[in-house]
Design a protein around this nucleic acid. Structure first.
Lengths: 326, 326
DNA sequence: CTGAAAGCGCTAACAC
DNA sequence: GTGTTAGCGCTTTCAG
């Protein structure tokens, strides 16, 4: 790999001069004659010089790399795409540190590599609680330790989004709406959004957990609609209905949460809430980079999930009638 | 960030000694007294020393990082998970270089960062053809420029896998089997696998492209089964059938390709071929690391896709009868 | 058993 | 306009 020293020798000048020219630090007025410049540029090209960012990082104390510490489960990749996009726009790149069992060792590796910032993605908060304090005193910002609290992380307003979906289901004319979810951390907020709206309309609310209640059980309850805590669960419900030849949305409506790609390919396609992972990754990375560069910080604006209306829900006749009566 | 120099000063020894101790290069026989060792280790811990891999990379000429150059479309992430896993097992980490429009600039960044190897992932071969030769002369292995030819890349034997699926469909008792695909590069091989088996059983083969033939058209052709070129297309077909209240697999069988997660959540769940992206990522990364470290290379073993049998196909009665007759 | 010194490739004050 | 010099943090050979 050719170095500046070699170029300097071939061109018969000093390394400093080469450095100046190759970094374009000779704005017409300053230093280095045109002739020498050209000569240096030419030999650099001829020799195939590529600058060494390792050294720049060492000297400048900045690597322009952001460490992503994660187990890299499927759901983080849309976020990472957002990260990658935005990082690239600011001249940063991403470095991946896989955590298998040991979060601390992954963090250590990221620090050894002298990342400009470290983002923990999708790490369970119980693990995070146990990170020794000294990791935070190294002078490297460690961000995104959970999905909600951290300022660098824009976050989906789970409750508000769930409320919006529930509101939509009520508007469709559904009365007996069941909330069907699991144990993931966001569930309580989604459930709260659901309850809030059900109470507002004085409708009976009912939350059921898929660990104790099967999709078939849900069907047997003969709901008007089921608001599922995530798209995957909604698809399971759709599959159960399909096997029993129960048509959706004719028999009852189904809504998911996430707008993951399964929701677009199910039969019928799912009405769901878009979690905007990509977008949230972009904003998140922008904030992280801002915090590295300026220490300034735009105020935190939570993202609101967009309602995605597809074929698994529909306006019921009596609702349409109701609208006519107004 | 604390340095060895600081440790040396606090401990009252030279930097060399610190280096030796911290790198565990004092195997009972050699150098440095126990007392000094302990002292150094203690002050290192007290000060919170974390070694600087940037410098190590500079000195050793190896970064232990693999550059992934890609547009990071969804389909590459299962591969990247495999990469990350295997890289981590060998003490390497991944660095992501996003290519927006300009492959060369992304490659240049990866070279500037002095990656030990560079993998181009999911880059169209037309772009790759135009990479100037000098990129390959930098001493950094650039691998995986396409999905098939490169020795570092294990690859799914597309034709063989498609043949296996077709064979399965024939075994199910289906006669009129349509192959329904698109324009992606793997399609011709999959089609060839399909044709090969259809001919073997002297069944009529028919290939239709979704750019000119809609899922509804396919249904109207009243096939026994449809072998789709990918899971997504298969789901589109399932959705079209659902809207017309045509039951699968009762009306006809449907098979996909890829075993992407949509295939597991469709109604009915899809019979498909597992492309083993994760596994292929693992093997690929292993080969790349081997090639960095030894220049030795295990022979290339193409991966065979596993048949994943789910609810969208079934054994037909006359086939079962046939089996009884034997 | 321990330390001095050179070197990895480059930047940035400062002198000539 | 151009070169000298001292670092950045660490490894490693070679004296002591």
């Amino acid at each position: 790999m050719v170095t500046m020293k070699e170029i300097a020798e071939k061109a018969g000048v000093s390394r400093t001069t080469v450095s100046f020219v190759l970094n374009g630090r000779c704005h017409k007025d300053q230093r280095v004659s045109k002739a020498v410049q050209k000569k240096i540029l030419d030999t650099a090209k001829k020799l195939g010089y590529v600058r060494n960012d390792l050294v720049l990082s060492l000297v400048k104390g900045r690597t322009h790399a952001i460490g992503i510490v994660s187990e890299f489960k499927d759901f983080v990749f849309p976020i990472i795409r957002g990260y990658a996009q935005e990082a690239q726009n600011h001249g940063y790149s991403l470095r991946l540190f896989q955590v298998d069992d040991d979060l601390e060792s992954a963090l250590t590796k990221a620090i050894q590599a002298r990342m400009d910032a470290i983002v923990c993605l999708g790490i369970s908060s119980s693990l995070v609680k146990n990170i020794p304090q000294h990791f935070f005193n190294m002078g490297i910002p460690i961000a995104g330790l959970n999905q909600t609290g951290h300022p660098e992380h824009p976050f989906l307003d789970q409750q508000h989004s769930a409320a919006a979906m529930t509101e939509y289901l009520v508007e469709c004319g559904y009365k007996k709406i069941i909330c069907y979810g699991g144990n993931y951390p966001q569930m309580p907020l989604r459930e709260a959004g659901y309850r809030e709206v059900m109470e507002k309309y004085q409708l009976p609310s009912q939350f059921l957990n898929h660990h104790s209640v099967s999709p078939d059980d849900i069907i047997d309850l003969k709901p008007d609609a089921v608001f599922c805590g995530d798209d995957y669960l909604a698809c399971r419900l759709l599959q159960a209905a399909y096997l029993r030849n129960i048509r959706i949305p004719e028999a009852f409506g189904v809504a998911g949460f996430g707008n993951t790609n399964v929701s677009n390919f199910s039969s019928p396609a799912l009405t769901t809430v878009d979690e905007s992972f990509f977008e949230s990754g972009v904003i998140s990375m922008r904030n992280i980079i801002l915090s590295i560069e300026n220490k300034k910080f735009p105020e935190q604006t939570p993202i609101t999930g967009k309602l995605i209306i597809r074929g698994s829900t529909k306006n019921l006749p009596h609702n349409l009638k109701g609208k006519d009566e107004k």
